[in-house]
Amino acid sequence: MIVKLLVFGIFTDIFGANQVGFELPTPINIGQLKAFIAKKFPQTEALNFAIAVDETYADDDLIINENQIIALIPPVSGG
């Protein structure tokens, strides 16, 4: 399936975009998606990023569905 990812913070510099899409095998969980991203973009690996599904932080074992809103969340720095 094609997984579309919203991209924020330093990831917009790394990916050069606010949104990216990848063709990925199914089923795929959050942990596997993180590993895929870290392998494809080695600069992201040291950042210990999180992934949100439908605007909520997701655990590594959550399986992703095609119609969900998935976002890469690099270390936050609000306040």
Partner: peptide, 18 residues
């Protein structure tokens, strides 16, 4: 909270915490 701060200086900019 998913908010990101970018500090700008005269010689460039950095993403805080990144």
């Amino acid at each position: 909270v998913p908010i990101w701060k970018k500090e700008h200086f005269n010689d460039g900019a950095i993403w805080v915490n990144a």
